[in-house]
Design a binder for these strands. Structure first.
Length: 427
DNA sequence: TCTGGGGTCCTAGGACCC
DNA sequence: TCTGGGGTCCTAGGACCC
């Protein structure tokens, strides 16, 4: 049987677990942005009760936030990853858990032995209690025979208080359960396919599962067939993640639009430096560098332009200077004057282990070694004294002189899991 | 004024080959 | 010049996930 564990309002729960006095209060986590906040990423149920939703731009809901004294935290991914790993530890200490996977920062899958419904509920209740006691994070659990059905079970566990956060779907329960789930809420069905399915008369997960396979194949291709099989109780999804990441991205939406080539080039350099650092931290090298730029897609009154360019390197590398050079080259090939740019980013791909670097005939091993030592030195200086204390000239740029926005109040950024100065005190 | 960031997988179609 | 039939490889873009 497949067990799915889903953390409730994960980012918000993390903040509340470190600030217990906020329990029962409306709390949201939003990504921080100097212009007045980005979008809401997670909210407690008290915040949901105020009508707030995931994805709301902060500026649109500031009145609701302020009037109700909602506590707003800036998103702190590293902290959430740390807490996620602690949850993983707790689960792995439990008996009978096999093939355990962390699917995402807030979701886990495991296999558990066959047992009857009541035994499964009792077993998972113990596990759920261990997680909540060990980390302070409330979770919902679903159990069924495939990954997709286990997620359907969790969908019920979250929605109906009667389940107390645990729902088991046995084969006999599946038809009734699928009849109650809108097709758009099924794992693997996104915002593009759901309306298309609606026009075909597919309203629920059950409707989908009853279509002929050939029809599904023709309309929704392989991913659609996998979802179809899973809903019919046959495992078709592989959730094991590749051991190494295949691409590393760093991108940002700017506070203000800019048409300046120099400013954009400096941003690109910064993003490349950040991505290269991530690459080295996982002991990898990459062979291609992709740069993209976008204008503001919400400003339909302005001319739109989006483009992307990839530069393939002669040799895989993790050296900042080489990667920045490649990124600048890619950027130069797609930059166009007179557009108001709003977003840009860098993607490193064709990633491999740094132990298996092919040697370039034309670069001496001495140069490679010097480059490696330079990266080690800059990384350790920047780790100790702060980001970008040592940087490339290409990263410099003039800050645009703009009035700071009338900002909503964010909680101070605290790193309780990684910074000794921020550690919590327990009495 | 202000609208996120980081990923994976699949496939159609172009560009080649004989 | 055009025509057919049989392939392979690559890549941009779409769709999905959190």
């Amino acid at each position: 049987m497949i067990l799915h564990i889903d953390c409730n309002s994960f980012y918000a729960s993390c903040e509340v677990s470190l600030r217990p006095e906020l329990k029962g209060k409306p709390v949201v986590v939003a990504n921080y942005n100097e212009a007045g906040g980005g979008i809401i990423l997670a909210l407690t149920k008290e915040a949901k009760a105020l009508g707030l939703k995931r994805g709301n731009p902060v500026f649109q809901v500031r009145d609701v936030l302020e009037k109700n004294g909602v506590v707003v935290f800036p998103a702190n991914l590293q902290k959430y990853v740390d807490i996620s790993k602690r949850i993983m530890q707790v689960v792995q200490e439990q008996e009978m858990v096999q093939a355990f996977h962390r699917y995402s920062v807030d979701e886990f899958f495991a296999e558990i032995p066959e047992m009857n419904k009541q035994e499964a509920i009792d077993y998972v209740a113990t596990l759920k209690e261990a997680i909540e006691h060990g980390t302070g994070i409330p979770v919902s659990c679903g159990i069924s025979v495939t990954y997709t059905l286990a997620k359907v079970a969790t969908w019920y566990a979250k929605r109906f208080a009667g389940y107390k956060g645990i729902c088991v779907l046995q084969p006999a329960d599946i038809e009734k359960a699928l009849r109650g789930v809108p097709i758009a809420d099924v794992w693997g069905v996104g915002y593009r396919s759901a309306p298309k399915m609606g026009r075909m008369g597919i309203k629920t997960a059950w409707d989908y599962s009853q279509k002929p396979q050939a029809f599904i194949q023709k309309s929704f291709r392989l991913p659609g067939v996998r979802t179809w099989m899973e809903l019919r109780g046959q495992q078709a999804v592989d959730i094991t993640t590749p051991p190494k990441q295949q691409s590393i991205m760093h991108s940002r939406t700017f506070t203000y639009m800019t048409d300046s080539r120099e400013t954009l080039a400096a941003y690109i350099a910064n993003y490349t430096v950040a991505a290269a650092r991530k690459l080295r931290d996982q002991h990898s090298v990459c062979r291609s560098v992709t740069v993209f730029v976008n204008t503001n897609r919400h400003r339909l009154d302005l001319p739109q332009y989006s483009n992307t360019a990839t530069v393939r390197l002669a040799n895989a590398t993790a050296g900042t200077t080489e990667l920045v050079n490649a990124a600048q080259q890619a950027f130069d090939s797609i930059f166009r004057e007179h557009y108001q740019y709003k977003r840009a980013g860098v993607v490193l791909s064709e990633i491999a282990d740094d132990s298996a670097v092919e040697q370039d005939l034309f670069v001496s091993t001495r140069d490679v070694e010097r480059q490696r030592r330079l990266m080690e030195a800059t990384d350790s200086i920047n780790t100790r004294y702060g980001m970008d204390k040592v940087r490339l000239a290409a990263q410099e740029y003039r800050h645009e002189n703009r009035e700071p926005a009338d900002q909503i109040r964010f909680e101070p950024l605290r790193n309780e899991t990684t910074n000794i100065d921020d550690i919590i005190t327990v009495r």
